[in-house]
Design a protein around this nucleic acid. Sequence first.
DNA 1: TGCTTTTGATTGAACCATCAATCAATATAG
DNA 2: CTATATTGATTGATGGTTCAATCAAAAGCA
Lengths: 224, 224
Amino acid sequence: MPLGQIMCAAVFADSAGTSRKASKAVRRHQLIEATIDTLAKKGYAELTLADVAKTAGLSVGIVNFHFETKEKLLVETLKSLAEDYRNNWQRALRDAGPAPAQKLASLLAADFNEQICSPRSLAAWCAFWAEAQSRPTYQEHCSSNDAEYSAVTHQLCSAIIEEGGYPYDPLHIARALDALLEGLWLDLMTMEKPYTRKEALNTVFATLNAIFPQHFTASGTVMS
Amino acid sequence: MPLGQIMCAAVFADSAGTSRKASKAVRRHQLIEATIDTLAKKGYAELTLADVAKTAGLSVGIVNFHFETKEKLLVETLKSLAEDYRNNWQRALRDAGPAPAQKLASLLAADFNEQICSPRSLAAWCAFWAEAQSRPTYQEHCSSNDAEYSAVTHQLCSAIIEEGGYPYDPLHIARALDALLEGLWLDLMTMEKPYTRKEALNTVFATLNAIFPQHFTASGTVMS
DNA sequence: TGCTTTTGATTGAACCATCAATCAATATAG
DNA sequence: CTATATTGATTGATGGTTCAATCAAAAGCA
């Protein structure tokens, strides 16, 4: 919903949601954004519809009007996060140069994109991740992209390994890179202020340089 | 989790004849174990004291007798998990051979120890991790060991890098290994298991082999 | 040893706060 | 005027906490 985003920015610009001509799509987006903010501030367990409504500058009843239930609001929020995440890395992959090493670098760097990797998004993701293990509905949306993402990294690693004649098992290396990203994400959201997004990205490139020295420098440039 | 109950019941039955002081400690432990099981099954948000009591085979009132409040029960549970984790890796470090590479291998492997890395423990950890974002009390206990752990891996990586003349920045490599472990943990936690604990450990060794080829083989042996 | 008293653990029902969901009333747009 | 959007008070259920009563184990006493 790119249209919704633009209109929503306008709504947020003027004072708290008084314009009733806001379309249904815009209001839904506004409530989803408020849900993300509330998740980041209060966590999943303490999130109440009253909080969300207050954050959005609306009344409590409106949530159940646009989203039938609290559960559905949360699922829609998760879907929105997953969609943003997916669009982000797919765009990065598309816009990258043709060489596998270029694509891999672009893909991994995309995970530390400012919009995707903001504290509020990370906190919201984290909240869902935790609940997902005991809730099949969330689990599905949390891991739906993962398989696809893993397939891409696996394929790129295989290509690079073949290209450079590295003596590695592509599966293990790809899995390690996937896990590395997840771990860095976790650090960025969990720890108080350990290191910046930029430093996380430097860590990724240091690792790529160590594993694929013919293809990556430690400073992040790609050799083709 | 039924296994845990049986074992716990056995411990409890064994101590039935001992002093009441011992009984109190046992009961607290029993309730903490029940809390971990319940967290694993229901997640943080849906955990109720009635669930915990039922899992432990006790009444609801007893929880507030031994732990003043639900909050305190959860904090004690987190402390217990953190202590177990800490003891596990410190023991592994102590029992390992003298070479830095041996110590590092032992340290990293300890994270995939069966007791520490059980689905129930992972799920409980995850629940706290997520809530820790918005709760300073949890945050403190979640990250208290991390600094110490990071310091050890950093020191070991520095030693290995110097020993082998690798052209790496120790900080980045150590951070990458820390993040790798966290990411693998996260993967193992998801209910639909993509790979086993053993495979996670193989991934760690594949990575060590790629980064430090003079010190580690891909099959997990350490060269000194 | 047997009997009584005291302490501490345990129970379950009652109490009360919180919060999702509902709904009748109201405002706005077309 | 009609349909749609919005409000906020109300409701009903859930769940944490409290508490008086019960029970079992230890201590005191003869």
